[in-house]
Simulated assay, not measured.
Amino acid sequence: MSTAYETLLVEEREDRVVVTLHRPEARNAISGRMIAELHEVCGLLEADPKLLLLTGHGGVFAGGADIAELLRRGRDEALQGINSRLFERVRRLPMPTLAAVDGWALGGGAELPYACDLRIAGPDAVFGNPEPGLGILAAAGACWRLPELVGESIAKQVLLAGRNLDAAAALAAGLVIDVVPAEKLLDEAHALLDRMARSSATALRLTKLVVDAPGAHPVADDLAQAVLFEGQDKKDRMTRFLEKRSRA
């Protein structure tokens, strides 16, 4: 575990980085300091691409942004996009990202998982965006990411009507890949990452780039495939596959 962070627990492994939001005194609320530290982690993952697992400490993912800090922010801070710039950076990380969510994931604490490629939930997970009740809007990506993830109707129920999505509703809406017992949440999250880690890292990176590219993009598909077709990794993997099948 790293001791260089005040609001995060960071564990670096050979093929992944595990980041735990750790502000137990504030239900892991996302503060300016946490934003800065998450930017540091993004810098590490951009320089040395690995899978990312994000989770929260103590049975809570993040109870929202730090309201005391939000109260002090004005127009200039809003225009800086303090949270939205970080979450977009998370979205654009080279390798796949996974949020393991149990307990509350509210406001900015929901928008951070929305920015990840995949989400897995414990039975007590609750996603919600109560920002209008505080006189603001969910401006760190929820207003456009959530409709892409769950559809316009459900997104408006969350963003306008204040509906919270519990674990079952999140699964039904396709927001999370699975709901697993709380005591198995991290094990199942790592199992999912293990499955991805067995794939070609270059293929994962290029697939993510192509999936995230806007609109139809057959040329980008062809260029990415051309890079992979010339790689030794592709030749080795396909050769092993054919040899295994011939022995079956």
Rank of each mutant, 00 (worst) to 15 (best):
S2D: 15
T3V: 12
A4T: 09
E6H: 14
L9T: 13
V10D: 06
E11M: 10
D15F: 09
R16S: 11
V17L: 13
V19H: 03
T20V: 14
T20W: 11
R23G: 09
R23L: 11
R27V: 09
A29M: 10
G32D: 11
R33F: 07
M34V: 07
M34C: 10
I35E: 08
I35T: 13
E37F: 08
L38T: 08
H39A: 11
H39W: 12
V41N: 06
C42H: 02
C42A: 15
G43C: 07
L45Q: 05
L45F: 04
P49G: 04
L54G: 08
L54M: 07
L54V: 07
T55P: 00
G58I: 06
G59K: 05
G59W: 04
F61W: 07
A62I: 06
G63I: 05
G64D: 07
D66P: 06
D66A: 14
D66Q: 13
A68I: 08
L71T: 12
R73Q: 15
L79R: 15
L79C: 08
G81L: 05
N83I: 07
S84V: 14
L86R: 04
L86W: 04
V90R: 02
R92L: 15
D102N: 15
G109C: 05
G109N: 03
G109F: 04
P113S: 02
A115C: 04
A115H: 06
L118K: 09
I120K: 06
G122H: 07
G122N: 09
P123N: 07
P130M: 04
P130W: 03
P130I: 04
P130S: 05
L134N: 11
G135P: 06
A138L: 02
A138T: 04
G141F: 08
A142K: 01
W144A: 05
R145S: 03
P147M: 02
L149M: 09
L149Q: 10
V150H: 00
S153H: 10
L160F: 10
G162W: 06
L165T: 01
D166I: 02
D166K: 03
A170D: 00
L171Y: 05
L175N: 01
V179Q: 03
V179P: 01
V179D: 02
P181R: 04
E183C: 01
K184W: 10
L185R: 03
L186N: 04
L193D: 03
L193N: 03
M196N: 00
A197S: 14
A201S: 13
T202G: 11
T202L: 15
T202H: 12
R205P: 01
R205D: 06
L206Q: 03
T207W: 10
L209G: 02
V211P: 00
A213C: 00
G215D: 01
H217E: 11
D221A: 11
D222H: 12
L223G: 00
A224W: 01
A224T: 02
L228W: 05
L228F: 04
F229I: 12
E230S: 14
G231E: 15
G231L: 14
D233S: 11
S246M: 13
A248W: 10
